[in-house]
């Protein structure tokens, strides 16, 4: 059995096509044995049922909004007990647990400078409970709490810029990644672990049920998010942008939106054109800001 299968393997209950196991295994490939603190959410539910834990590393789930603080506590304990050599401390938290309900604990962890790698598994809504919008849900997405209706075209507000929030806290290493590029995730985690202090990696992770796609479309759709520049893959070290994934022949955002049920209404809704134009503007801005076009 490969190392990452041993650390996170049989027993998890993820949907076929779910991005989470890809993300987690790609992270653990780089960390090896480590301490995992997980927030309540998709990953927790698919991996930690009593008697069926999929984890081959010490794992803790406390409550929804405190994984960053729990990880900080583990790190403090390892320091106090002289056990830092046992392995790094890693958080896996969903986008809602990160950007909404848990942002206070995350800010505290960053601010105090704990030696913790925080991995946000961004499937862009509260998917575990059936696709309710979070701060990381992109505009135009129809969720159960921002449904598309006669007047509203799904979520109205922008996706919260968590990497910028991490950078503002002087997190030592900040990066985005995508389950479409698993080796890139592993490389970034390896790089992150070279920095002592707080590190933040946000991984775009497909949710087949919430996004309304087939399992076999999962990776192509995830790739389109990167190829349209809606999900720029960027890497900061000590506040400096050091690497980006360049895009050859950047695709229009419609190509990413069309296959997904959550965006389908945009192509017939009276405000759909406006939202698509806004998403294209965001993509263009990303491309310009980070120099993505090859």
């Amino acid at each position: 059995m490969s190392e990452n299968m041993r650390l996170f393997g049989s027993g998890h209950g993820a949907c076929p096509g779910c991005g989470l196991p890809i993300a987690v295994k790609s992270v653990l490939e780089a960390t090896g044995p480590c301490f995992v603190a997980n927030s309540t959410g998709c990953l927790e539910i698919i991996s930690s049922q009593y008697g069926k834990s999929a984890w081959g590393v010490p794992y803790i789930h406390s409550v929804f909004e405190n994984a960053a603080a729990v990880a900080a506590g583990i790190e403090a304990a390892l320091k106090a007990l002289g056990r830092k050599d046992e392995g790094p401390v890693v958080v896996f938290a969903g986008d809602g647990a990160t950007a909404d309900i848990g942002i206070g604990c995350l800010s505290g962890m960053f601010d105090r400078g704990h030696d913790v790698l925080y991995v946000c598994l961004d499937n862009e809504a509260y998917q575990n409970t059936g696709n309710q919008q979070s701060g990381l849900t992109p505009p135009g997405s129809s969720t159960t709490t921002t449904p598309a209706g006669k007047v509203l075209p799904g979520k109205v507000k922008a996706k919260k810029d968590m990497p910028a929030i991490a950078l503002a806290h002087k997190a030592r290493y900040v990066a985005t990644a995508s389950v479409a590029f698993p080796r890139d995730i592993t490389r970034k985690v390896k790089r992150a672990l070279e920095f002592e202090g707080p590190k933040y990696i946000q991984i775009h992770s497909v949710c087949v049920t919430g996004w309304g796609i087939d399992g076999k479309q999962a990776i192509p759709v995830a790739r389109l998010a990167v190829e349209t520049a809606l999900y720029p893959l960027i890497e900061f070290e000590d506040g400096q942008l050091v690497r980006v994934r360049k895009i050859k022949d950047r695709k229009p955002v419609e190509e990413y939106l069309k296959p997904q049920r959550r965006f389908r209404h945009l192509f017939k809704h009276p405000k759909g054109k406006e939202v698509i134009a806004e998403l294209q503007r965001v993509a263009d801005e990303n491309a310009k800001k980070f120099g993505l076009d090859a």
């Binding site: 405190n66 603080a69 729990v70 106090a80 007990l81």
Partner: peptide, 10 residues
């Protein structure tokens, strides 16, 4: 929450 993590770690 920090103490939950610390206590669980021993």
């Amino acid at each position: 929450s920090i103490l939950v993590g610390a206590s669980a770690a021993g």
